[in-house]
């Protein structure tokens, strides 16, 4: 029972974060939501008996994709500051 609830909750959180990440107007918010989405995916993989993927997702989602995206957002802002001082 509670495992079903857990699954459903995870799915809801997953879909919600994905949707918000695509829909929200603020870019940074989108990136944060995407990072959250990645972490949720890791939980999902754990639930799906796929710890290998969960490991990869945790490492790549938290360690690399998030870093890349945040770094790019920073670069974008720097550029915007330069163009609108």
């Amino acid at each position: 029972m509670s495992s079903l609830i857990l699954d459903l909750l995870l799915v809801i959180a997953l879909l919600w974060s994905a949707l918000r990440s695509l829909m929200t107007r603020d870019l940074f918010r989108a990136v944060v939501l995407f990072i959250v989405f990645g972490l949720l995916m890791a939980l999902v993989w754990a639930r799906l008996h796929a710890p290998d993927i969960a490991l990869a997702e945790a490492a790549i989602g938290a360690g690399l994709t998030g870093a890349l995206l945040l770094d790019t957002v920073g670069y974008l802002r720097k550029k915007q500051r330069e163009s609108f001082p």
């Binding site: 940074f28 754990a46 710890p51 969960a54 490991l55 490492a59 938290a62 920073g74 802002r77």
Partner: peptide, 26 residues
């Protein structure tokens, strides 16, 4: 799954650090 948790904990700092060092400056 403990290993997954370990990786989570090990890499938790990175998001915050990138944010502080790169995304949220000036």
């Amino acid at each position: 799954l403990m290993d997954v948790a370990l990786v989570f904990a090990l890499l938790a700092a990175i998001t915050g650090a990138v944010f502080a060092q790169r995304a949220w400056r000036m």
